[in-house]
Lab assay of single mutants.
Amino acid sequence: MAAAAAAGAGPEMVRGQVFDVGPRYTNLSYIGEGAYGMVCSAYDNVNKVRVAIKKISPFEHQTYCQRTLREIKILLRFRHENIIGINDIIRAPTIEQMKDVYIVQDLMETDLYKLLKTQHLSNDHICYFLYQILRGLKYIHSANVLHRDLKPSNLLLNTTCDLKICDFGLARVADPDHDHTGFLTEYVATRWYRAPEIMLNSKGYTKSIDIWSVGCILAEMLSNRPIFPGKHYLDQLNHILGILGSPSQEDLNCIINLKARNYLLSLPHKNKVPWNRLFPNADSKALDLLDKMLTFNPHKRIEVEQALAHPYLEQYYDPSDEPIAEAPFKFDMELDDLPKEKLKELIFEETARFQPGYRS
């Protein structure tokens, strides 16, 4: 834990890192770190609560700039109880001085990944967590956004079992017609939660990839272990087919990539493993919904509104309290091709509203 900075004593240090967030945020305490930044909790002297502050230093890398800009653009436009918001952003007053960006968010005690390492969940908890994931996802999908990296560590939890989806750095506007060349190379989302079509096709992607990830998360809540822990690309596919069985001819016809289709045709026939054999203690309604989410063919996979209306979630289902976005989200430009200098300018502009004396 960093010592509390005395008023006016300059930035606090946390594990050798400068955290320049005073005077409003003090009493910093280390939480963890990701690929390009550290997260601390801090005391907000204005709202009198502890908050989470993520320090991001992305400006050396085009990919990190892209992810940072995506996350900020999306989260500043989203407003939903099951999606983490941005409360404040701290950065230098000029673009030349801006080396880091500090993002202030609600402090959540833990995440689903940490929880599943230590606790076996009751059916009631599984049901409530799944409902909140789908409630947040309904809003995301209504904005025409794909999260693309749903996994237990991106689901934040607090002691009252509130759940918030975080990390929109890989999110995209849904565009089933656009052929994202190089899709697989830039697709760094965790393999275990990846839909089979991501490994088999490169053309376009749809909201059904997020539903697949939610199915993987439900299976993990039922058993405290990942359902498809593939060691590499082909191993991942083999794990999936080992449980779902061989795809039907109709399902194979959806695979545009001939090499991928021929690979699947070359494999020995596998039978589907019954879900109640894998999860003998699970609620039968939970397994019915799991089956509809972990469907090989993305066109037959359940959609988020149908999933919310499934009998497993009937005690929570309330369409009048499951809000959607006001308007579909649009990125003005494809960020993939922009140089990091341009992305830095866009991050600077996007964060201006939090600067003292800002006038829109």
Rank of each mutant, 00 (worst) to 15 (best):
T68A: 00
V173R: 04
I56C: 11
F228W: 12
A92F: 15
I347Y: 05
K270T: 12
I165N: 00
L107I: 09
Q105L: 03
S213H: 04
S266F: 14
I56Y: 05
Y187H: 05
D318N: 00
P23Y: 15
G245M: 04
A171H: 03
M293S: 09
K54C: 08
Y312P: 04
R135Y: 15
R50F: 13
P226L: 02
Y139C: 03
T68D: 11
F19V: 01
A5T: 04
M293F: 13
R50W: 07
C161S: 00
M98L: 02
Q105K: 00
I31N: 01
F348C: 10
R172Y: 06
N281R: 10
K342M: 14
T26C: 06
C254H: 03
Y317A: 13
G34P: 03
E81Y: 13
Y43H: 12
C127S: 00
A9Q: 06
L28V: 12
G215T: 02
E303F: 15
I211A: 04
Y317S: 10
Q105T: 13
N45Y: 02
G215Q: 01
I165Y: 06
N201S: 06
Y233L: 01
V49R: 08
Q315D: 11
N47A: 06
R135D: 13
D288F: 07
K270N: 00
L252G: 08
S208I: 13
A352D: 06
Y205Q: 03
L343A: 06
I126G: 07
M98I: 00
D283A: 06
P93F: 15
L156A: 02
S223V: 03
V21M: 02
K330E: 05
D106V: 05
N257I: 00
T26H: 07
T94M: 10
L76E: 11
D149I: 06
L343K: 06
S202W: 05
S213L: 04
I140A: 06
E341V: 03
C40V: 09
K99H: 07
C127W: 10
S208H: 10
L200D: 02
D88W: 15
N238G: 11
N257V: 09
F78Y: 00
Y358P: 11
G357T: 15
R225E: 12
G16D: 10
R359A: 07
L150Q: 01
Q97T: 12
I255Y: 05
G8H: 11
G37H: 02
R172H: 10
I103H: 06
P58H: 01
K231H: 14
I103T: 08
S360E: 02
L137D: 02
P196T: 00
A92V: 07
N158G: 06
A260N: 10
D88S: 13
R77G: 13
E322F: 15
S246T: 14
P11N: 07
N271Y: 02
M108R: 10
P274G: 13
L146C: 06
K340A: 09
I103K: 03
P339R: 06
T159D: 08
N82K: 05
H61R: 07
I302Y: 09
L107A: 09
K344N: 00
E350W: 15
M108C: 12
L244D: 04
M98R: 12
V14P: 02
V104E: 05
Q17D: 11
N271T: 04
K340M: 00
D288G: 07
E96R: 14
R15Q: 05
E326H: 15
F279P: 09
P58R: 14
T351S: 00
V21Y: 04
M333N: 10
G357L: 08
F296K: 04
I95T: 11
Q62G: 08
N224M: 08
L76W: 15
N201K: 00
G242N: 14
R79A: 13
F331Y: 00
Q249H: 01
I324C: 13
Y64N: 00
H310G: 05
P280E: 07
A352I: 13
N82F: 15
A307Y: 12
S284D: 12
G37T: 02
K203C: 03
P268W: 06
L76Y: 15
L278T: 05
L121P: 08
Q249M: 10
W192E: 02
L130P: 01
A5K: 10
R148E: 02
K55G: 06
D162C: 14
D318V: 02
D291W: 05
L241E: 05
L112Y: 06
C254M: 15
Q355C: 14
R70C: 01
L116A: 07
S213K: 04
E341F: 14
L252N: 11
A352K: 09
Y43K: 14
I86K: 10
I240T: 09
R261K: 08
K54W: 05
G182F: 05
N47L: 07
A143L: 08
H269Q: 04
A6L: 04
L112N: 11
T351E: 07
F279R: 05
A174M: 14
L137N: 02
Y263W: 12
Y43N: 00
N224L: 06
I74F: 00
S246E: 13
K99Q: 03
N201M: 08
K340L: 08
P311K: 11
R277K: 01
V51M: 12
R148F: 02
T160M: 11
M333I: 00
E81G: 07
G32Y: 04
Y233F: 00
L290T: 05
P229N: 09
A195H: 08
V39S: 04
N27I: 00
H125I: 02
L28W: 05
N27T: 08
Q119I: 13
V18G: 00
A189E: 01
G182V: 00
F19T: 06
L237V: 14
C40Y: 07
H61G: 08
F168T: 10
L218D: 02
T94L: 08
F296C: 04
R77H: 12
H180G: 06
W275R: 00
Y187L: 04
L28A: 09
R359L: 09
F183D: 06
N45P: 14
D288V: 01
K207E: 08
L308Q: 04
I302G: 03
T26P: 05
